[in-house]
Every structure is written in structure tokens, then in C-alpha cells.
């Protein structure tokens, strides 16, 4: 049985060895995934605010007696922090209708639960800054880092630390064209596969101090060029002169793309988001890669 199988396999390889010399290229779409969460649009912001207000209006009254035992210091601090509404009283005219208080909440409106401040912030500003940078100090105030980095302000497009909520893509200026880095598939390196050729080529032009993770062995798209390096859109002609460029997707995880001086074909590189790519590359090239790039 095994022999038969081997026999059929050998026949299979025999047929596949008749590959022609059609020029093939392997291209790498190297992306940096978002580091911070997506920015929400103005409409989404407004809608979420509306929903939250509705939810708060329809909220049950906060059961203070459950969380704070009567007569404790915590209960007193909590009670002091609240803004209690004015209760209804006979003979008093309320222009916005009579208050309807239950458990210290006006049931006609939302309840605002205010938490008492635990620690008093120091008045001295210098002292605060000192304690901010003192990472050994566990009691330092918690402050979130900015979502906009200095590279955003400088608009340094070669930096990996720009546009944190978006996916960045590596584009190189290869032989005068801005595109994803692409590499020739030669007969000697054909055995390693398209993904390996693309990953190895990236290390030749960008140094090997880069950690990448290719999404798949198989290509995400194909772009065809004619002999004049123009993109062909129709798929009928099976010409020997047509160059086929296969796009492989990959993520950068660590390290950096460091342009090697020894390489002549690549002169420049940029880390860009989708909209910036649209402005930079050829329209015909962009139409081929448009759907492969993330909107986020």
C-alpha cells in the first residue's frame, strides 16, 4: 500500500517539476496592530451618552443601607458626600413639580451617587511631580499616559509609536515606487515558499533585529504587472511576460525596521495608516490593496 502511495506521489512531483520561468514576486504587508483601543466617533460618543443618561434615570435607588452599616464612619462620610434633594413640604410651591423623595432620592430624576474622596491631594505641585516619577512609591497618584505621542506631534512617519489607535503598515520606496516591500522568487529559493521568501527579504532590506509573525503561508492577494511594470486588471491573458506579485500578511511584534545602507533598491520607508497610503501610492495599486487594509 505504501509503495503504491509513494509511486503516485512520485508521479505527482514529476508533473509539477515542469514549472515555467514565469516571473513571480513575493510581497509582504507588514502591519503594526493597534496599541490602544479604537477612537470612538462623535456620533457614537453622543449616543453612548444618551444611553447612559437614560439608564441612570431608570436606575433603582442606590441601597446605601446595604453597603454601609448604620452608625459607622464610612456611612457618615458617604452621607456627607451626597447632595440630598430638597424634600416636599406643605405650603411650599415647587416650580418644577413636587419632589417625590424615597430613600433620599428624588424619584423623578436620576440619582447621582458621589463617592467620598479617600485621600487628600497634596497642595504642593512640585511634590506631586516628584512622586509621579517615583515608580518605587506605591502610593503615587495614578495618571494615564497620553494616547497622542510625541511622534504624532512631530508627524514622524518612520516611527512605530505613532497613531496608536490605528493599524500601521510598512511602505517602502522600492525602485522609485512607494509600495509594500516585494522580493523576487528565484528558482534556488523556491523551495522555501512565498511567506519565507518575503520574511527573509524583509530582513535583508531592514536588518534581522525584527520579530514578525506571518499570518499564513498562503497569499492574501495577487497583483499582475505587464512588461512595462503597469498593473493589469483583466485576468484572462496568461502571458509569460506578466509578473505576478503575491501579497503575504504579517505582523511586527518587536524590534524595528532599520533600513540597510547596503541595499540599493530601497531608498526610504514609512509606517502609514490606510488613508495616508491612499494619498501616497498609485491609484491602480491602491485599488488592488484597498480591501486588505484595516479601517481601524
Amino acid at each position: 500500500m505504501m509503495q503504491i502511495r509513494q509511486l503516485t506521489r512520485s508521479f505527482a512531483t514529476a508533473t509539477t517539476t515542469t514549472t515555467s520561468n514565469i516571473p513571480i514576486k513575493s510581497s509582504l504587508i507588514l502591519s503594526r496592530t493597534p496599541i490602544v483601543t479604537q477612537d470612538i466617533s462623535e456620533f457614537e460618543k453622543l449616543f453612548y451618552n444618551y444611553q447612559e443618561e437614560l439608564e441612570r434615570r431608570l436606575m433603582w435607588t442606590f441601597p446605601k443601607w446595604f453597603y454601609f452599616k448604620k452608625g459607622t464612619v464610612a456611612e457618615r462620610e458617604f452621607s456627607e458626600a451626597q447632595n440630598y434633594p430638597i424634600p416636599n413640604a406643605r405650603g411650599v410651591w415647587f416650580p418644577q413639580g413636587n419632589p417625590d423623595l424615597k430613600h433620599g432620592r428624588d424619584r423623578r430624576f436620576k440619582q447621582e451617587v458621589i463617592l467620598p474622596k479617600k485621600h487628600i491631594e497634596s497642595d504642593n505641585n512640585n511634590k506631586e511631580e516628584d512622586s509621579d516619577n517615583d515608580f518605587d512609591n506605591v502610593g503615587r497618584p495614578i495618571r494615564a499616559n497620553s494616547r497622542i505621542t510625541k511622534f504624532d506631534k512631530e508627524n514622524d512617519q518612520t516611527s512605530l509609536e505613532r497613531k496608536l489607535p490605528r493599524t500601521l503598515y510598512l511602505l517602502v520606496n522600492q525602485n522609485g515606487n512607494w509600495k509594500f516591500p516585494s522580493f523576487n522568487v528565484l528558482s534556488e529559493n523556491e523551495n522555501s515558499g512565498l511567506h519565507k521568501i518575503a520574511e527573509d527579504g524583509l530582513r535583508i532590506i531592514g536588518g534581522d533585529k525584527i520579530n514578525t509573525w506571518s499570518v499564513s503561508n498562503s497569499p492574501a492577494a495577487v497583483i499582475k504587472y505587464d512588461s512595462n511594470n503597469k498593473i493589469i486588471h483583466n485576468t484572462d491573458n496568461n502571458d509569460q511576460l506578466i509578473t505576478r506579485e503575491f501579497l503575504i500578511k504579517s505582523h511586527i511584534i518587536a524590534g524595528k525596521f532599520d533600513l540597510q545602507k547596503s541595499n540599493n533598491s530601497v531608498s526610504d520607508f514609512k509606517w502609514l495608516v490606510k488613508e495616508e497610503i491612499k494619498d501616497l501610492v498609485d491609484i491602480s495599486y491602491y485599488s488592488k490593496i484597498d480591501h486588505l487594509l484595516s479601517d481601524i
Binding site: 509539477t16 513571480i24 523556491e190 515558499g193 512565498l194 511567506h195 497569499p219 503575491f246
Partner: peptide, 13 residues
């Protein structure tokens, strides 16, 4: 496309 022009690369892919 890959299968039609280079079955070996297609197999690896």
C-alpha cells in the same frame, strides 16, 4: 493563480 503558474509554491502555501 499560484496553482496555475507554480504548483510547487502552491503546495507549500
Amino acid at each position: 493563480e499560484l496553482q496555475s503558474i507554480n504548483p510547487k509554491l502552491y503546495e507549500i502555501a
